[in-house]
């Protein structure tokens, strides 16, 4: 299955879920992401029943946390990945996962159109970059994200173009620090 390269506006659908509890918008998100979350969890070692249960949990969390999603900071896919990852740690490893301190991003600013476009594009571009990696290298990265690798087994170099993503986020953090001081 290829990365979704259709131009569905997932962030727009999220906004409709958040602002109008729009069930049709949610259903579209569900049809695209729930089967992928289920597949992700099965690759992480869950059986089909548990994976289906957890995928439903993850999607229900998406509904309940819709107001916390900030499309200028992450794409919908990235955000759902973090929810699914945490669900996996909870369900399969039964471990706690301390999280970094939240930053005070201030009153809900109108998301910057450019940032919004960027975060979506970044996921698409990284998907393409992943697809172009040699099979062995890609498999290693994917196994890490399926929770199937220890940190000792990870390669130092991913071969993925992460520099531009880091720079953009770094810049946003600098702006935030300036506003705070």
């Amino acid at each position: 299955m290829q990365a979704s390269d259709d131009m569905t506006d997932w962030a727009g659908l999220m906004a409709r879920v958040r602002d109008h509890q729009d069930r049709a918008a949610f259903a579209a998100l569900f049809r695209h992401f729930a089967p992928r979350v289920k597949s992700f969890l099965m690759k992480s070692g869950a059986d089909a029943t548990l994976a289906e249960e957890c995928a439903q949990d993850v999607m229900a969390t998406l509904w309940h946390k819709a107001h916390l999603f900030d499309p200028s900071r992450a794409s919908v896919a990235t955000w759902i990945f973090t929810i699914a990852r945490n669900r996996r740690i909870d369900a399969l490893r039964k471990a706690r996962r301390p999280e970094p301190e939240e930053l005070d991003w201030g009153p809900e600013a109108e998301p910057d159109g450019a940032d919004l476009f960027e975060s979506r594009q970044e996921t698409t571009r990284l998907g393409a970059a992943l697809a172009q990696l040699p099979d062995k290298q890609r498999a290693l990265i994917e196994r890490a994200y399926f929770g199937d690798l220890s940190h000792g087994e990870l390669a130092a170099e991913t071969g993925l173009p992460l520099g531009t993503i880091k720079s953009r986020i770094r810049l946003a953090l600098e702006k935030l620090r300036q506003q705070m001081s």
Binding site: A74, A77, A84, P100, E142, K166, I169
Partner: peptide, 20 residues
């Protein structure tokens, strides 16, 4: 920032998963 970049990789990996 680097951590956020690695979470984007997670999003891309999820998006590439086949559909169960």
């Amino acid at each position: 920032a680097q951590l956020a970049a690695f979470e984007v990789v997670g999003g891309a990996v999820l998006d590439r998963c086949d559909m169960a």
